[in-house]
Nucleic acid binder design. Structure first.
Lengths: 208, 208
DNA sequence: TGTACATCAGTGAACGCGCGTTCACTGATGTAC
DNA sequence: TGTACATCAGTGAACGCGCGTTCACTGATGTAC
């Protein structure tokens, strides 16, 4: 764990983004006003525009930070799992369990996936922001696919299955599980969906 | 198929809602302005307010119509599947295949789930609208759970599994699959996810 | 060590546009007698 | 069959508020000589 030293300006910028992200996940980007953000952050409107060129610039920075952070979390979980088992399948199953546990431990449940939120408002954003969500999903597919390839090499799949789809399913179950949890006001619904995906992987490659 | 005869006013109301829903699924509810809706519908602003008390009233009507319509589609697919097989498992597997086929045949892919869109903007809406999304997910769980109970009675599950979660997973895979498809600009990604869920069901109750 | 200048991290006031909403009014169609 | 009235499905103009954005300015901190 590296502790980053932030300058005064960087601290303010992070605070603005924390407040903004929380609001965006609750109300959507359009109905999150700069006024409400600066009010909570305790700065003036010009202070906001010192840090961000315009509102779209905030949108981009939020998404960038969100996906960067997500990969840090996943890399960490992958590393932990690899330390607990050399076998690609068991390491992956451990990873999924660690992921579910992590999501189960968030006090009020996962606050929402910013990528999913953006996809449902994509016509609001400039093309470069939209491209970021697409690229994100493509990277996820590639990285999870790598893991599945290694598993399939050692444990032949019991059924005929497309590994790209299987890789995509993690994103789908995650995005859908978060929506389910939010809608049902049940934080545990999401981690339970991850564990269900894990059961599927076990059935496909181990048969039980 | 019942052909409904709509009065002039009802036709306008439907047209407003069609235009609004399309815009909401692309940009979110907040950034869909009444101005743009009436412009496309070819009426004046007062015409809009003749049909809807305020903007929140439109939100509610859209969600109500969307979920009603969704259940009509599902009821129809369930009926078709039941006609093709008396067996609860095979009927369910047929239903999932029909569902996937239906989603695969939408020219530009599924336009987006209005419920999911609302969940990601829930703090914008009044409490009664928010309650509708929660209730929607609860009903889906109950109805799919019924199907799974009948299956489990005849085909004991091969693994220890929670049938409520398994029922919820349809919603999760659907919502997540739609997001995936939209983000990747690949309309077929969604139906492929449905077929993956179908493979999971087969593995759990049939073992292959 | 003191001075000049540059950069950082903002402030304060003003702008104009678009938004949701209201209100008084209206022509066309439907209904009662 | 004609007249009176009610309802339907809107129109047109105005309202005020909140929004994102701009611009001239400023005190505190950092750097060069």
């Amino acid at each position: 764990m590296s502790v980053q030293v932030l300058s005064k300006g960087e601290q303010t910028r992070e605070r603005i983004m924390d407040i903004a992200q929380d609001a965006v996940l609750h109300k959507g980007f359009a109905s999150t006003s700069i006024d409400e953000i600066i009010c909570e952050a305790g700065i003036t409107k010009s202070g906001f525009f010192y840090h961000f060129r315009d509102k779209n610039d905030l949108a981009k920075a939020l998404l960038q930070r969100y996906t960067d952070n997500e990969w840090k979390v996943f890399d960490d979980l992958f590393k932990q799992a690899d330390e607990l088992s050399d076998d690609p399948l068991h390491s992956f199953l451990i990873f999924l369990k660690l992921f579910a546990d992590l999501m189960a431990d968030i006090p009020n449940g996962h606050p929402g996936c910013l990528v999913a939120s953006y996809v449902y408002q994509d016509f609001m954003f400039s093309a470069d922001v939209r491209e970021l969500t697409t690229e994100g999903h493509r990277i996820w597919r590639r990285r999870f696919r790598e893991k599945l390839d290694k598993i399939a090499a050692r444990y032949p799949a019991r059924i005929d299955i497309n590994l790209d789809d299987m890789a995509d399913m993690i994103s789908a179950v995650a995005d859908g599980g978060i929506i389910l949890s939010k809608s049902l006001h049940d934080p545990q619904a999401f981690p339970r969906q991850i564990m269900l995906y894990r059961a599927f992987v076990k059935l496909v490659f181990l048969g039980n």
